[in-house]
Each structure stands twice: as C-alpha cells, then as structure tokens.
Design a protein around this nucleic acid. Structure first.
Lengths: 206, 206
DNA sequence: ACATAATGTTACCCACCAGTAACAATCGCG
DNA sequence: CGCGATTGTTACTGGTGGGTAACATTATGT
C-alpha cells in the first residue's frame, strides 16, 4: 500500500495559502499544513508537499518548526484558538440572549458539517496518533475541554437546568456528524444533525 | 516524527489471537490485524508486527493476503459482518418486543463506548484513508448504511413515527461518543451517551 | 513412509520520507 | 547603496517498511 496517496495532487497548487498580499512563510506553511493534515491525514502528507503548497520549501519549514511534530502541534494550537472565536461571535450577534445564541450555535455547527470543513482536525489527529503520552493529546484534550465548558455555560445561560447534560449531548451529535460524514456517503445520518440538535434542546427546555 | 509508535509494544505478545486450540494462521493474522489497526491506526502498524502478534510471519501473511491493503479490506469485511450480529442477538433476547430491543441497544452501545473497544475500526480507517475512490470506502459506506437500515427498522417496529430521524440521531450520539472518547480525556462527554440516547428516544416516543 | 501442500526463516530490494549540510539568491532596513 | 538576515535550491543521509526470493521445516492425507 503506497504511503502517499494524495488522491488529488492538484490541490497542491494555490489553495488559498498565498493571498494577494504575500504573508510571511511561517504563516503560509502553517495554513497549508493545517489544510493538508485535515483533508489527507498526517501520515499521508509529507513535509515536502506542505512546503510546496505554501509556495515555500522544506528548509524554511524546518527553520520555523523544528520537526513535523512541532508543526503539527502548532497547527493544533492554531485550530484550537480559531475554534474559540465562535463564542465571541455568538455574543456579538445576540448580546445577552443566550437562547438565541444556542440556536445560532446549531446553525453554525450545521454549516460546518455541510461544508468541506466537516472533518475535525483535532479528532482526526487523535485517531492517527494513539500514543496517549504524546504531547499532542494534551493539546487536543484541553481544547475539547475548553469547548465543553463554554458550551455548558451557554446552555446554562439559556435557562437549561441540566446544562452539562445538554451540552454533552449536543457535543456528541456534532462530533458524530463530523465523523460519520467521513465514513458514510453524502446522504448519511449527518444530514439530520440540525433536527437532532433541536429535538435535544427541546427535550431539555421545560 | 517516528512512524512506528506502538506505545506499548508488549501487546505484541499473545493478545488472545492464539487460543488453546491453534486456529489457522489466516484467522490469527486477521484477528491481530484488526486489533492493531483499531488500536494503533493503519499507518502506525507494520505487517511484520501484525504477523508477530499472530504468532506467524510476514510470508504467510502475504500468501493469504496479497497486500497490506487486501488485509485491511478483509478486516473491514469481518468487522462489518460481526457488527450485524447484534440485531439477531437483540431479537433473541426480546423476541417481538422492539421497544425492549431498542433499550437493549442503548445498553449495548454504552458498553461498547465504555469498553476498550470504543474506537470504531471503520470510522478510523475512513479518517486515515481519505481517497474516496479507494475500494475501502465502498466497504465502509455499505456497512454504515446497512447498520442505518437495521436501526431505523428497529425504531419503526418500536412504534416511533419518525423512525429515520430517531435512528440517525442515535447514530450520531453513538458515533460521537466513540470518536470523542479518543480525543477527550476519560471523563469526556461520552460519559453521557446513555442519558443522551434515552432522552432522545423519549423525545420521539409520545 | 511418502509426496505434497502449507507454514516458517532469513535475507534482501526498493521506494518513500524526515531531517540536515552547504551554498545561492533575495529581502529589508539603515 | 550595502550588509545582515531571511528565504530558496540542491543534494544528501539514515531509517523504516512494503513486498519478494530462496530455502528449511512442519503438517496432512493416502
């Protein structure tokens, strides 16, 4: 079984990693690495391809990130950071109205699942890198926990008595949709994510 | 980043793949491969380790399975076949009582998530092998679809009007629990799988 | 016991890839 | 401009792992 099976190598050409204004190489590399890791997995992506997609080269990559692993960690941290932006965004859109924010959250995650962004980098990395003592797992677990705290808080502010239970249930639905969208066909159970979330919220709102 | 990181190589010694009665090598290899693929991923497991765990050797492996990929396919097919046994088991335990069978299903999947069997081989393989034209994806998608049909049927027989919706929601919860158990710590949201399923069933049973 | 097939052992080839060394080109700022 | 720092290019090493060839050993059935 060949190890490198980037089934569409065309993606390696300009994939939004080099905007009109040339961003610094480090940033470009980080972006292309994130993209490739998420869409093709870690093992299937070589550092050379990453550098190419970033319109850079292997040496520059290694000057900024000491190893493929460090690069991966940086990707995970960036990913985790980006993820937290949603809470501020929700608050901005519906200030003080947690119930509306919770509904907006459902819309957001539904959009994610239906986008080409449905695969979760953190979860996929956890699948490929099973060694639990690995530093990577700390990053992943911390990110997931932070998300959990935030979502629970949102549920509580929305007036849900069993906020932890609802938040965890919604998380399971979301994560389930993300993973099944990768294994089932395009019409798989993840199509029912939105209705499932709403049903669950309904069940916990009284 | 090293490619082979079997964090506990001890597992490579007798892991239930050689019972008191010596089963044929093909079977032993299939079992050890399934186990290793599920627990360590595909890329991280070499064929040599698989053969060793099966108390066999690389040559015998290649005589039965022409390549690592064929071996993987065989594992997936076996896994899919095993999975279908649950429906007969449920019917045997509660003949004709679909409502009880559905509750028993919840117990079953909860046990799976809390066991060391929580990772789903099919889903994990889909994560690592992203090439959609790959024959592997057909096997995976078919297995997931078969499961979906069966679970939907069970929900319908249990008197649920929106059987497809409930079945898909339950699938999302189950799959979500399996994947998050690999990325979050041991006290992650997957602990709430059972309550989430029951709440969902309840919401659809009126 | 004998022949045949199945299994085990060793050694090897080859491709791929993470990571490095040395040198060339280019950028940015005074 | 000029000079240091950043980036680019090429070529290489070392290790790993999929897959194979040749031969040795052990089962199986008649």
């Amino acid at each position: 079984m060949s190890r490198t099976e980037l089934h569409d190598p065309d993606i390696a050409l300009h994939s939004g990693c080099d905007g009109e204004i040339k961003r610094p190489p480090r940033e470009r590399i980080l972006n292309s690495a994130s993209e490739l890791f998420r869409t093709h997995g870690i093992g299937a992506v070589g550092v050379e391809i990453i550098a190419e997609l970033a319109n850079s080269n292997k040496m520059t990559l290694y000057r900024h990130f000491g190893s493929k692993e460090e690069l991966l960690c940086a990707c995970l941290r960036m990913h985790a950071e980006k993820t937290t932006e949603i809470w501020q965004s929700l608050e901005d859109r519906y200030p003080g109205d947690a119930a509306k924010q919770l509904r907006a959250w459902v819309e957001e995650v539904t959009d994610v699942v239906f986008s080409d962004n449905s695969a979760c980098l953190l979860a996929n990395v956890a699948v490929e890198q099973k060694d639990p003592n690995h530093g990577i797992h700390r990053i992943i677990a911390d990110a997931k926990e932070a998300y959990r705290v935030k979502l629970t808080d949102l549920c509580r502010r929305a007036g849900v008595a069993e906020a932890e239970q609802l938040a965890d249930a919604l998380t399971l639905l979301f994560e389930g949709a993300r993973i099944i969208s990768q294994s089932a066909g395009p019409d798989g159970p993840h199509q029912k994510l939105k209705q499932s979330c709403l049903a669950m919220i309904n069940a916990f709102s009284r």
